[in-house]
Design a protein around this nucleic acid. Structure first.
Lengths: 290, 290
DNA sequence: GTCGATTACGTATTACGTAACAATT
DNA sequence: AATTGTTACGTAATACGTAATCGAC
């Protein structure tokens, strides 16, 4: 077997063409490289270079050897990458969600029951992408707004969320008890940029030009206070106090404005996340009682 | 990058299960292995083992690492194997032939013009197999008894060979000037085992049970002298003095009993073997003159 | 007591750098 | 003169072995 450092030095020479350039790239001296190249030849028992006129170059065998050396080195680097990634994956729980609110609500439970692990959360606007991610171990837990048919997933019903329009009290619409997306068409409405699948819903029912998307949440809060423009809200957000005093929040009665969230994992991991699912279940129970 | 010796030691431990057995396999001491395993963990920056009760075993990450280590090591060994094989191939000329006689005749030319190379000759009973071997660099030169249609080969007509039956002078057939395979059916005939495609010809035209195949050439010579059984001969063999005084050699007039040999190489190698083909051509010219 | 792993210490190997030299361009 | 590769020599790093220690079965 050939030691890795010899292959690294050989590969560097093959790329750079001269020992000098290779030695600069590797931050070692030429004599070291010169000796290493001889050593590699000795180890293999074959000649790898043309040596003439203080000019060193690969011969036919050397070119073949360089190709294979590259393979060995990438295999080595691959090992490092994969082992580190695997080790990381053991200490990390990746959670994907179609919407930001369930994640916020679940965070305390995650921190309780996965205290020794790193928690990594990610928003996605597509249930489908979340499920494929769950399947190929990109995620360990996902929160969906649709119930997957696949039996290889374990699903627990979690919570409901209802979208509201928060609109100035003197606006004609403020007199209504409920509205439809249809009634909101043509009105400019502010909306946060990080709302997962809700953005798709909004774009489907309203003109895209009417949506004032604001990715920065602080900026959105400022805008709400500084303007009288309506904005999208939800029962969950209102519960948390995200409301504006001079506005009225009116529920949107379209089916699409209501979501039921499901917490999902691979059936093989069902036991692993048992305590989390218990917390989810009791949360769902408490809220169904109301 | 991880040095190869660390991966070798790690792999040995993964196979053997204990440091002691691994150390015996590698002919090093346990302390060395113990230190190396720690070093590997340090280099990767992750834990690879369960250490408890003077018992060392791979943890989950360690098992993954062992798989990848194996890949790196096989890539390393692959490199060595292929580089050595390639280097060998540069100093070797592999010659395949459908018949022994052309090789014997060409040997002096090979030794003249490939003096710095190792010459490797091989008999094959199938032109087809010789051609595929030539295509995939198993052979560099082949001698065929059929002219290949493929334009990616360069072909040079070489020599003729005519099969004779050498039969006791008092045998009825000995009175004939020529014979056919048909006339020889039912007669037990001795034949050498190493005659390439000729064996196929004999089996096609004669009962297999009538052929007394003798793989050892010396034994065949002895048998020829000690018995009066007929045997197959050829004009080329007769020229070289391979004959028996108390027998008569009669040419077989079937088409199959006559062969025209072609020396063939890949067109890409045509120049490389130019001097050999010159020798072949002049040999063919001399013999056509006769 | 045996087996397996680790620690501590000393040694031998060897990979590397410095300096000088050789050979081209 | 500048560039590139090699040789010679000394040094620092390190891989290894020996001996002793600890724990468990």
């Amino acid at each position: 077997m050939i030691e890795t450092y010899l292959l690294e030095q050989f590969s560097a020479f093959a790329r750079c063409g001269t020992l000098l350039k290779a030695s600069e790239e590797l931050h070692i001296t030429q004599p070291t490289l010169s000796r290493s190249m001889r050593k590699l030849e000795e180890k293999l028992g074959v000649s790898l270079f043309h040596r003439e006129n203080s000019k060193l170059s690969l011969n036919e065998t050397g070119k073949v050897a360089a190709e294979y050396a590259e393979k060995v080195l990438t295999a080595n680097q691959d090992m490092i990458d994969h082992v580190l990634a695997y080790d990381r994956s053991l200490r990390t729980v990746s959670i994907g969600s179609c919407s930001p609110f369930p994640i916020n609500e679940l965070m305390p439970a995650f921190q309780d029951f996965l205290s020794e692990k790193t928690i990594l959360t990610e928003l996605s606007d597509s249930d489908e992408r979340l499920l494929t991610g769950l399947k190929n171990h990109q995620y360990d837990l996902v929160v969906l707004h649709t119930l997957p048919a696949d039996r290889s997933f374990f699903c627990q019903r979690y919570m409901e969320e209802q979208i509201y329009i928060s609109i100035a009290k003197d606006h004609p619409i403020a007199s209504l008890d409920t509205v439809t997306f249809e009634q909101l068409r043509g009105i400019r409405i502010m909306v946060s940029g990080n709302i997962g699948f809700w953005m798709e819903i909004c774009k489907r029912h309203l003109e895209e030009s009417d949506l004032l998307v604001q990715s920065n949440n602080d900026a959105l809060t400022d805008l709400v206070e500084a303007s009288t423009l309506p904005f999208f809200n939800s029962d969950r957000m209102i519960e948390l106090g995200y409301d504006a005093p001079d506005r009225k929040s009116i529920p949107i009665r379209d089916d699409d404005a209501h979501a039921t969230y499901w917490v999902v994992c691979r059936v093989t991991d069902q036991k692993k996340y048992r305590s989390i699912f218990n917390a989810v279940r009791s949360y769902a129970f408490r809220h169904n009682e109301k």
